[in-house]
Each structure stands twice: as C-alpha cells, then as structure tokens.
Amino acid sequence: MEDRDWVVLQELYKYKNITRTAQALFISQPSLTKRLRHIEKELGVKIVQRGRRGVHFTPQGEYLAKAAKEMLFNLRQIKEQVQNIDDKVAGPLRLGVSNYFTKFKLPGILKAFKSRYPQVEFQVTTGWSREVHQLVYNREVHIGFVRGDYSWPDQKHLLFEEPICIASVETIDLKELPTHPRINYQTESPFQKLMDNWWTENYTEPPLVGMNVDKVDTCREMIINGLGYAIVPRAMLDGVADVNKINITDAAGNPLLRQTWMFYYQESLHLHSVRAFVRFMTDTQE
C-alpha cells in the first residue's frame, strides 16, 4: 500500500461518505472508488460496503482504518527525523492556531520567523481553541496557540493577555448598558462563560440583543458602523479611533483578561524547527 492509501482510509472512516471524502481529498468520486477497489484487491479483503446512508466498514476495514492513523503518524515522524539529522533549521513545522490568533497575530509572526529560517515549511491548521487544544494533545501538530483557560500537562508559555472591553461608537454609561442594543457573536465557550458571568454580576436583567452574527470579525464591522455595542478583546479594535472602549473588571476591581497560550510537548524540542520557533516566540515576549 502507498502512503496515500492510508490517507484515503483515514478520511473515508472520518466521513463515512464517498462524496465528502472525495471532496476532502480533492479527487473525483470515480478515482476514490477505483483506489478503494485497488486496496481491496491488493489485500484480498472487503473493506467497505456501500449503503443508502453512506459506507459501512467491514471488520477488516475497521482494523485498517484504525491502523491508518498510527501508520501516518509513524511515516510523518520518520520524515521529520530524516530532515532533522542535519544541524540546520529546516523541514516542516506544524502549528495549530485559533481563528482569532490566525487573523490578528499569526501572519506577522510567520513572516518574521520565515525571514530568519527560510527553509522551514509551515503547515498551519486553524480552528476553535478547543479543536487546537485537541490537535496538539494528540500530537497532530507540534505547537498549539490556544486562547482561554485550558488545562495542559506539559510545556506552556503565556504569550498575551488582552483586556476585555465594552466597544461602541456611541458613548455608553455602563449603568445603562442593558438599554442599549448588543451585538452577539459566536465564540469559545470559556469566553462566553466569562461574558455571561460578568453580566450576571452587574445586571439583574438580560441584555438587549439587537443582532446575532457568525464571528467576531463581523461583529467588529458592526461596531465600527455604529450598529450596537459588544463585549470583545480590546486588541481587535487597535487602531480604530472612532470607537469608545471601556475595559471591564470583576467584582474585586481586577481587569478581565483573555489569555493566549502556546502549548507543546517537551519531547518535540528535539526537532530543530520546533526548538527554534519556541525560542523565537519566548524571546519575542521578553
């Protein structure tokens, strides 16, 4: 079997659907079906059975799909070790990055690191912090950038602490906040809990929600256009002069902060690219 065959099995087991798997692999459905038949012929077993609701794995197929994850992990490690034999900082660097960090912080960081180590190849996976946390925990990425309070058993560095603020074009008296239209947006559950707790500590009535939007980027544009207020990390409005920002505090008067952490395993530091990147990030924060 070829490397790509293990990828096919892994993705098909994930989606349990020929169409979605073909889309994820950027190949046609006939090509995917042909590849599956080739694998079955080579191994002499039936791997999947097609039904009205997708594909079903046979016992042999279940075994192969679960083995695919281990095979691909081992192949990746072998390639990384081979590229790591020389002393030069080169080869792949797999990063898991939260969506917010990707937009507002990551491009400048990668540009600066790439100028110093041009032979490093970035492989970036973005998503919610909970997803990134899982990626780095399962060693699918070397380093994860996670926002919020997540437990971690190994190495971690606090990179940023951002004040949380009420942002609005209109000048707002916090005592009258429940009477003003609020813009809600989808966010991580720890941050949503932080906002909800702050609200219930300060108000006995629910917020007056004027609109619900899909993400913080959309919320930012709504704020700038004067369509309401929102509770957001202050950094996302850096450089926007016409928006009023009021940092909020807890009951003891301490500022509410959203933290961004860098997570990784100590064992990953034997790779030159990982060690160089960790050093680069920690030196930048000093």
Rank of each mutant, 00 (worst) to 15 (best):
G148K: 09
D214C: 11
A251C: 06
F280M: 00
F145K: 01
P92C: 07
K111E: 07
V89A: 04
Q186I: 06
R52L: 13
E140M: 09
I78C: 03
W6E: 02
I224M: 12
G96M: 01
G96D: 09
C165F: 14
M262C: 07
A68C: 04
Q155D: 03
Q83H: 01
K111H: 08
T187S: 14
L271V: 04
G44P: 04
R182P: 00
K114V: 11
V274G: 05
G96W: 02
I166E: 00
Q285I: 09
N74Y: 06
P107E: 06
F277C: 03
N99W: 07
E2P: 14
V82L: 11
N138E: 12
D154F: 10
T249I: 06
E42W: 05
S189P: 10
I85S: 11
T284F: 13
K16L: 09
K105D: 14
D238E: 14
Q49L: 14
A276M: 00
Q49M: 04
S98Q: 02
N247D: 15
E170Q: 11
R234G: 05
L158T: 14
A68H: 10
I47Q: 03
V82I: 15
V132S: 01
V48C: 05
D242K: 15
Q119W: 04
P59F: 01
T249W: 15
Q29M: 13
M262T: 09
Y265P: 07
L227K: 12
I164A: 00
G91E: 02
A24Q: 08
W261P: 05
K46H: 01
D238V: 09
Y203S: 07
K175F: 08
S151A: 13
P190A: 03
L106R: 06
P118G: 14
T102C: 08
G239V: 10
L159G: 05
K245C: 07
R220V: 06
K79Q: 02
A90Q: 14
L110Y: 06
